[in-house]
Write a protein that binds this DNA or RNA. Sequence first.
DNA 1: CGGCATATCCTGCTTTCCGATATATGCTGC
DNA 2: GCAGCATATATCGGAAAGCAGGATATGCCG
Lengths: 112, 112
Amino acid sequence: MTEPAFLILTALVDEPCHGYGIVREVERLSGGRVQLKVGTLYGVLDRLAGDGLVALDREEVQQGRLRRYYRLTDSGSRTLEAEAVRLAENARTAVDRLRARHGRSTAAGGLA
Amino acid sequence: MTEPAFLILTALVDEPCHGYGIVREVERLSGGRVQLKVGTLYGVLDRLAGDGLVALDREEVQQGRLRRYYRLTDSGSRTLEAEAVRLAENARTAVDRLRARHGRSTAAGGLA
DNA sequence: CGGCATATCCTGCTTTCCGATATATGCTGC
DNA sequence: GCAGCATATATCGGAAAGCAGGATATGCCG
């Protein structure tokens, strides 16, 4: 699971969303740090759909513009959860080892 | 930062290690789940060295076999810590949203 | 001597990311 | 009306990265 894929799945958890909306949602939930590129988005979206992690929800025409909404599938939800656990474990392992290394100075202080 | 790079940096936190040893250390600290491929290892190691996150520590000849030890630099340590925080945030965001979605069923139970 | 673990490195295939570009509509300013 | 911008989709090609596999070499064990 790549990071863009992870963020796209996360963006779709709350409610179905269309491509352009996903870009803005990812930017919002990352605190403006991650600006998904459309060249990345549609490729990843197709791949996720092919893997059955997201599915086409509906198509709307809003102000003359097509909006193609995608939603998270049950499989996508489970996959995202498993991946989140794995990420958290990796992060935790690194932090633990960093603390053990220089318990004296940095690394121990500023962590959630 | 890719995941193999993250795991390699994590493996080097405790003490300098040589390539083949890193493979085993990553396997150990991931609970046997991640088996780093040597084809991946040396490429990532070169890249990390080029970025100044790891450095050649020393070379030893043990039982006729060359061992090239790498160590984590200060920059590598700081980068790893920042990346661990970012990973933890991504994981946390996903988990929070999953819980809000179906606070009834899964997602809430099995997390560290 | 053959096979296995150790230990390095290289090559090529595939996947993935991303910048760029194309197409199309509606709104706003001029 | 027309230019420019935001919205919204899609596609192409280059670059980066992961990974399977093999090449090379040594020591150990049977």
